[in-house]
């Protein structure tokens, strides 16, 4: 693993999709009028015959993708996460999930990474998609994971919801990082607290772990890119080996990763103090930049530290997360 500030790259998804589609001629690429924003301008240039403009019509786009999948295509459907899930929910259910078709819904700008106001913030997309039978739900953390994930998801027989950060994507994992649909990854080992995170909160989880380690605490960080089906074995292993659990997700705490971990712990009869970092059942307003929202709504490294401190029953104030300086083109967790 690399250290913050992370260097960033542009359009790792767009490049990975083109690389994948070169040999996989079943892949068709569909856009809901957000081509450049979803990094698929490269696909449009490279494979114009397999590029479909659906226009701003998400309901038709999703049902049409289902029919294309019935004909043997593997449709990758692109728009922002809000428009990929909220708006065409019934179409996803009836035209894709129930018939268990290999449609890949790719939703950009997860959670509060969009300063575009509540209309553009996919804060419950994971909960919605997780509730659907047959659906695989993935939230990746960095450019390496994006690149490794794509070849893994192409042959899943049913539908997939893939949630992706937009714009500059950090490189957290080194080239030898393995992505698995079945296994979550323990990134650090320790016996005091487990921090279970994914997506844009993974870098914050790693930073928090580093700071807690400096306080003499042992931290197990688990990266869970595949929220459904959840690797309950790895989650339970991390919970069993620690005294307290913190989950961290760029999403509402209802129905996403935190809920999935809580359900898993409860069903296994594993009692541990649990804190869920994420939006606390609220919409997120009032920002020009995303980092402000991460701080304002409790999704920062400091919030993870405070939660771990409280879950472990520590007295006194939690350690402070130092600000990480970044230069142009670098990324550091908030």
């Amino acid at each position: 693993m690399l250290k913050p500030p992370y260097k960033t790259v542009l359009k790792p998804y767009g490049q990975a999709l083109v690389d994948l589609a070169r040999d996989r001629t079943e892949i068709v690429c569909i856009t809901g009028d957000l081509t450049r924003q979803c990094e698929i301008d490269l696909f449009q240039e490279t494979f114009p015959d397999r590029f479909i403009h659906a226009g701003m019509a998400e309901a038709n786009m999703v049902s049409m993708a289902g029919a294309l999948a019935r004909r043997g295509h593997i449709p990758f459907v692109h728009t922002f996460g809000v428009f990929a899930t909220r708006r065409p929910l019934d179409q996803i259910v009836n035209s894709v999930a129930y018939p268990n078709l290999p449609v890949r819904l790719v939703g950009f700008m997860p959670g509060v990474s969009s300063p575009g106001g509540p209309s553009h913030q996919a804060i419950e997309d994971v909960a919605l998609m997780r509730a659907l039978p047959n659906m695989t739900v993935i939230d990746v953390a960095d450019a390496t994971e994006i690149r490794k994930a794509l070849p893994s998801i192409v042959d899943i027989p049913g539908p997939v919801y893939l949630r992706l950060k937009r714009g500059e994507i950090p490189v957290i994992f080194e080239e030898d990082h393995q992505f698995s649909l079945k296994k979550a990854q323990r990134l650090t080992e320790g016996e005091d607290v487990a921090i279970i995170a994914n997506g844009m909160m993974l870098s914050s989880a790693l930073s928090a772990a580093e700071i807690l380690k400096g306080e003499g605490l042992g931290v197990t960080v688990v990266n869970v890119p595949v929220i459904k089906p959840l690797d309950t074995e790895t989650v339970l292993g991390a919970v069993r080996g620690t005294k307290a659990v913190v989950t961290a997700e760029n999403h509402t705490i209802i129905g996403g990763l935190g809920s999935a971990v809580a359900e898993t712990m409860a069903e296994a009869g594993l009692g541990r103090p649990l804190r869920r970092i994420g939006l606390q059942d609220t919409f997120a307003e009032g920002s020009r930049t995303a980092p402000h929202l991460f701080r304002k709504y409790g999704l920062s490294t400091q919030d993870i530290l405070t939660a771990a401190w409280s879950a472990l029953g520590r007295s006194g104030p939690a350690p402070e997360a130092p600000a990480v300086e970044t230069s142009e083109g670098e990324y550091a967790p908030v």
């Binding site: 049902s63 294309l68 179409q91």
Partner: peptide
């Protein structure tokens, strides 16, 4: 069963 989705499906077949 959910009305109007069939036409989108038919469009998908015709497009394919």
């Amino acid at each position: 069963g959910s009305l109007s989705q069939g036409l989108s499906g038919a469009v998908g077949f015709a497009l394919s």
